[in-house]
């Protein structure tokens, strides 16, 4: 199991985490030493849709900055915005997930142990937006600028502080905001089927070698057991079969 799923182990990997992955915001030049984007990948990627269904302008700027910090353009993928990650998050917030579909929403609302799960009277969309506002407020207080205006290294530092609970808010559990909402959405944006707006051109599936659909592997199971699977180079998604 990877550390992605283990909030308890966050501290141990943070100690080892290099900051080599820090890279550009769309509007900022690449810092020295950052990886060069794969131009072939960028060329294949059409301009990202920029009309947001849930996020307002400041919120969209925040999320776009965030996905570009978490997914810098490098030898593996274009930057987060060009991978569709912000659009994915926006669409999820506007859709059933963001509106709290399937979540128990009755009161009373009391805070308890983390293992009992989130207890806020907010939908995921409301929580996401409240968190963005709170982080921006803290960024203005500490850095004199909103999150999207920070230099990449400063923005990375802010995310790390939120993630491991060093940045707090008097009203909102910011670590939970990041780990339970933002981070979960980020991972889904990267690895869900491209039809949801993220993982453009199945770029993350290509990166790891997940072949996608149709996954009818009765013969492959034997033929490619223990061997590289050719279909992993060119993953197919639901859209390819629709």
């Amino acid at each position: 199991m990877s550390d992605e799923k283990k909030p308890n182990d966050r501290r141990s990997f943070l100690l080892q985490a290099g900051l080599a992955g820090v890279a550009s915001l769309t509007s900022v030049a690449l810092p020295a030493g950052a990886s060069t984007p794969d131009t072939a990948l960028i060329a294949k990627t059409e301009p990202a849709a920029r009309s947001f269904h849930s996020l307002g302008p400041e919120e969209a700027a925040f999320i776009e900055a965030l996905v570009n910090i978490m997914c810098p353009a490098d030898q593996f993928t274009p930057n987060g915005v060009d991978c569709g990650l912000a659009i994915y998050i926006d669409r999820q917030l506007a859709g059933p997930y963001g509106q709290g579909d399937g979540r128990y929403q009755s009161g009373p609302f009391k805070q308890g142990k983390p293992e009992l799960g989130l207890q806020l009277p907010l939908t995921p969309e409301q929580f996401c937006k409240a968190g963005i506002a709170a982080v921006n407020l803290a960024c203005k207080r500490d850095n004199g600028a909103t999150f999207d205006q920070l230099a990449p290294a400063a923005a990375q530092a802010v995310l790390e502080k939120i993630e491991d609970g060093r940045m707090t808010d008097p009203r909102l559990p910011l670590a939970s905001w990041f780990n339970d909402i933002i981070y979960a959405l980020f991972i889904e944006a990267c690895f869900a089927d491209p039809m949801y707006g993220g993982n453009r051109d199945a770029v993350f599936w290509k990166m790891i070698g997940y072949p996608g659909l149709p996954a009818t592997h009765t013969i492959d199971m034997v033929r490619y057991r223990g061997k590289p699977y050719p279909g992993a180079q060119n993953p197919k998604s639901i859209g390819d079969f629709s």
Binding site: S2, T77, Q156
Partner: peptide, 27 residues
């Protein structure tokens, strides 16, 4: 791919190093 990827302990949770570890170890 959303839930069933594994990366070694110590892998950062995002960024280029995170991608590198996923690319290296998924299969």
């Amino acid at each position: 791919p959303i839930r069933s990827r594994s990366t070694p302990s110590g892998t950062p949770r995002w960024g280029t190093e995170w991608k590198k570890a996923n690319a290296e170890w998924y299969a």
